[in-house]
Computed example of a mutant assay.
Amino acid sequence: MDSTWLVPVSLAFGFVVGTGLVSLMHFAALRGERAHDVVNSSVPDGVDAVIDALESAGIVVDPSNVVVKASPGALAFGLVGNNSLVHPELTEMVNRVRRSGERLTDEVTLSRGPFGEANIVLSVRVARLGARYVLLVADDRTESHRLDAVRRDFIANISHELKTPIGAVGLLAEALQAASSEPDQVRRFAKRLTKESERLARITQEIIELSRLQAADALTEAEIVSIDRVVSLSLDETKVAADANNVTVISGKKTGALIYGDEALLVTALHNLIANAIQYSPRGSRVGVGVRNSDGVVEIAVTDQGVGIPEVELDRVFERFFRTDPARSRRTGGSGLGLSIVKHVVENHGGDVRAWSQLGRGSTFTIRLPEASRAVATAGDKK
């Protein structure tokens, strides 16, 4: 048998087998690369840097909803824990985008942190990032919602506060007309009408004053102000109220303290504190006004012997229209804006106001203001 033909056949067979092996190895390599891509948790190039630079909360999740990248904001909001989304609401949004392929925007309210002590309101946007990943971006809208609620409450409170005296004025006017032939009744209704009109004017003026204080140019006419003079003027303005309520107002010695600001606004603020102390003091008690300056800070303290303020309400006394005793405030004509005006006046002067109280023992409100340097005061005197 001639064996010469076996050589080419063997070579051809070897070539086929070798080619097949190479193809199998190449195919296996491609499958290995695809498998690596499936399990690899790295995000597309450049996304890491973008997420790190985000001020918003940014999160990238893989097909298994494992968080492969999270911005500092996402961690600060408590949205990520153990490489997973903490809140089911966010997971559901991610799943919806993965199923539909369409971007999703929604606003959600979530608990902040694992214990859920407080809520945050987030504007959340979710979209696919390439073929595998989903990107979630969230912006904090909590403060915006709080301010909206404050505005709504403010408008509602203004409406309520103005409604009472306006309604009373209308009714009294009708009563006056009906009692025109009865002098005693006319005098009684006229006295009530005057009181309600004064209350209406006071509320309106305080709203205007508060709006002005919230403007950027509230201290356009600032100058050197003597705190001793501010105290003296405030005491003069509250003397009638103190005598009417049989409350004695005493003040400490003069200190010569000076600040840079608006005298009229400071008198308004201190007047409000003293008037508030008189209003909530029992008859025959005393209200003290003291001033001290130390380490560049001037402190004006107003102390009463009144009923005191519950601790849970102490942080709210400077809110607009907040009253610790609504019934009493309305009887005395209080608008609920006095302490809010104090707070804004003091803050516009670069200071702060603090409240201390104990039920049954009274309260102390302390205004703290930066003292004007002697050099500034001297320069102001020479003008």
Score class of each variant (00 low, 15 high):
382 K>N: 13
95 N>P: 08
321 F>N: 15
284 G>E: 11
219 L>C: 02
125 R>Y: 01
383 K>Q: 13
290 G>E: 09
287 V>A: 02
35 A>P: 07
294 S>E: 14
292 R>P: 08
191 K>I: 10
183 P>V: 00
177 Q>W: 15
109 T>L: 08
120 I>T: 09
245 N>V: 03
18 G>E: 11
74 A>G: 00
142 T>A: 01
375 A>D: 04
363 S>H: 11
296 G>Y: 14
220 T>Q: 07
116 G>S: 14
116 G>H: 14
264 A>V: 10
195 K>A: 04
38 V>G: 08
315 D>N: 06
40 N>A: 06
168 A>Q: 04
145 H>N: 03
286 R>C: 01
256 G>V: 04
101 G>L: 07
87 H>L: 09
197 S>A: 05
190 A>C: 09
149 A>S: 13
200 L>R: 00
347 E>V: 06
252 G>E: 05
361 R>L: 10
157 N>E: 13
216 A>V: 15
39 V>N: 06
75 L>D: 08
134 V>H: 04
35 A>Q: 10
290 G>W: 00
167 G>I: 11
292 R>D: 15
19 T>K: 05
219 L>T: 06
315 D>M: 09
280 Y>T: 05
72 P>N: 02
102 E>L: 10
127 A>T: 01
216 A>I: 15
66 V>F: 03
300 I>G: 05
133 Y>T: 04
109 T>Y: 05
122 L>Q: 08
210 L>Y: 15
2 D>C: 01
47 V>L: 07
371 E>D: 05
143 E>T: 04
367 I>V: 15
277 A>V: 05
78 G>P: 05
124 V>A: 05
187 R>P: 07
178 A>Q: 12
290 G>S: 01
344 H>T: 12
226 S>D: 12
255 T>L: 12
127 A>Q: 11
31 R>N: 13
42 S>C: 03
58 G>W: 06
1 M>F: 11
341 I>H: 04
84 S>V: 10
46 G>L: 01
92 E>V: 08
287 V>R: 00
100 S>D: 06
116 G>D: 15
144 S>P: 12
309 I>N: 02
46 G>Q: 03
229 R>A: 02
176 L>E: 05
215 A>E: 15
320 R>F: 06
197 S>V: 01
375 A>S: 03
147 L>N: 06
275 A>K: 06
242 A>T: 09
296 G>P: 14
166 I>G: 01
307 V>R: 06
217 D>R: 00
167 G>M: 11
185 Q>E: 14
121 V>K: 05
189 F>Y: 09
312 V>P: 10
23 S>A: 07
263 E>H: 00
223 E>T: 14
128 R>F: 02
69 K>N: 01
383 K>T: 10
29 A>N: 11
64 S>W: 07
146 R>I: 09
232 S>E: 14
